[in-house]
Each structure stands twice: as structure tokens, then as C-alpha cells.
Amino acid sequence: MTEQKSLLNRALPGLLIAGSLGGVGAIMVGLLSLAPTVDDGSGPGPQAQPSTVQIQNAAGAFVLPPTVGPGGKNVPLTPARLDAPPPLAAAPVVAPIPPAKTKAKKAAPVRIKIPKIKVNATIGSVTVDIKGNLTTPPLSKPTLTGWYKFSPVPGELGPAVINGHVSTTQGAAVFYRLSEVAKGDQIYVYRSDKKVTRFTVSGVEQVSKSSFPTARVYGNTKNAQLRLITCGGVFNKAAHSYTDNIIVYATLSKKKG
């Protein structure tokens, strides 16, 4: 995987844990330079061909759009400018779920459903390794997704991050069709405290791992948001890694429980 490998990243788990006790909003700004990118690290399975990136070319110069596009099946995904904000909510936004007052009562996401692409998967947890690289679910469990446990709990204030493999050497994995998700689609995340959250997709992009939009993915938000991340682009056999990431942005639009 291609990850941010600075020495500061090694301190990320401790910083995030401390920050979470004081409130998500207070920590995310300071963590933007530390936040890891997400990689899949898997081999391509049969017919595993994530969508290609289309970049506008004006007068010989690369011109990236100022906003994240809507995405959709058979629609080439284009990266937005690095300084572009997250896409605007595609549905009315509801207030975040208040976090638990004690660590013992803290909830965790347990299942994710994306009806559009027939995803119904268990959610485990991922963290960072000793080098500061964000981990992923085991390749032996291609249907498992991973919640970055130092990001907000889905439904609470801030951007919750869930990743998953696009493929393994055995074939397609849980997020194989993630590039087909489009603005307005629904994502459901079920939590251990019996609360159910519904997020509405606001945009989708495919970005090079060398220019990962850290601020857009991990930066502070004024409401509860969700990021789904997997690999895309071309598989580099020598590096055992895809060249790009596919990122889905969504905002909390309903909650119950």
C-alpha cells in the first residue's frame, strides 16, 4: 500500500484517542497533516477493473473540477481540486447523534448496507500500524469492511471512515462495485447501540494515491458524514497495489433507535 509514512503518523492513534475524549471537532483540524490515506493492497481478481479517471485538458494543462462529481454507473470519475470542499448534501440533513458520555458505552458500527450495489456486510475495525499506515480488513475476509476506529462513530459529528477491498486474488470483494454509487443513493450503517443511520450520497470521486484529498476526507464537518474508500485505477503488479482510490462522500439524512 502507498501510505503517508511520516514519523508524526506514529502518534496518530494516541492523538485521536485523546482528541475523541475532548470532542471530535477539536481534533480533526490538527490531524489533517497526520491523517493516513487508504489503500487496498490486494491483487486483482477476475474482471476486477475499477473505473478510470477522466481529467479535463484545457490548452495543454490539467484542469480539475472545483467540486466532487455525482458519480454513477458507467460515468468516468474525475478527481476534484485538492482545495475543494466535500460535496454539498444531496438530501435534508439531520442532527448528529450525541456521543456516549463514557468510553464504556461508546457505540461501534456493526453492519453496512448499500442497496444500490447489493452490499450487506459486517463492519470490523481498522487502525494504523507502527509505521503510521492505515490498515485494511484481512485479505482472507474479502466481504468484511473496516471502520477506522479513531474516526467518529457513524452518525456522530464528523467524517466517519469505512474502507474495504475492491478485489483479492480470489475475485471481487465487498466494494467491487463502489464506483457505481451515485449522488442520492442510500447507505445504511447499523450500530452496536441498536441505532440505525441512513446516509445519502452527495458525491463520488477517483483520485491518485499520490494526491489524496486528506482535508476533504478527514477534515472537520458541521454535521455527521460518512466516507467509503476502496481502490481503483490500474493494478501495479510490482507494487501489489492499485494506483488510485475511489471515495464516496455521504451525509446523515435519517436516524432511528
Rank of each mutant, 00 (worst) to 15 (best):
L12E: 08
Y188E: 15
P96L: 04
G203W: 01
N74A: 10
K106D: 14
S202K: 00
R177Y: 12
P159T: 06
T122L: 11
P109F: 00
T243Q: 09
Q54D: 11
A173Q: 06
V189I: 11
L34N: 05
V166C: 10
V63D: 08
V126F: 00
G132W: 03
C231T: 12
A172P: 04
S211R: 11
Y190I: 09
G25Y: 08
T37K: 14
T168F: 02
A108N: 07
G232Y: 06
P152Q: 07
I27K: 14
A18P: 04
L21C: 11
G72Q: 02
P159V: 01
N223L: 13
G219V: 06
L226D: 08
Q56E: 14
P154F: 05
A90G: 10
L157E: 07
I17N: 11
G14I: 10
T197M: 15
I247M: 05
L77Q: 03
S241L: 14
S241H: 14
K118I: 02
K131W: 11
L64W: 00
Y249R: 03
K255T: 15
Y218K: 06
I112H: 03
T169D: 13
N57F: 07
T136I: 10
K195C: 07
K101H: 13
A90I: 01
I27P: 04
V63P: 06
R198V: 13
V63L: 08
G219Y: 09
A238T: 15
G45D: 02
I130G: 13
I17F: 11
D39R: 13
G232D: 04
H165T: 05
G30T: 09
A238V: 14
G233M: 00
I246W: 07
T243K: 09
K141D: 14
L252E: 13
P66Q: 02
A239I: 04
V53Q: 13
N133S: 15
S33H: 08
E156T: 15
T230N: 01
T67K: 10
N57T: 12
V63E: 05
S208K: 06
G203D: 05
P79Q: 01
C231Q: 12
G30L: 12
P70W: 01
Q4L: 12
K103R: 15
I97M: 12
L12G: 03
E180N: 09
P138V: 08
I97T: 12
L12T: 08
A108Y: 11
T122Q: 09
L252Y: 08
T135W: 07
A26I: 10
S125Y: 14
Y218S: 04
A224H: 10
G72W: 05
S202L: 07
G184T: 01
R177I: 02
G155S: 04
P138I: 02
S208E: 03
L15P: 02
L82Y: 01
P46E: 15
T251K: 10
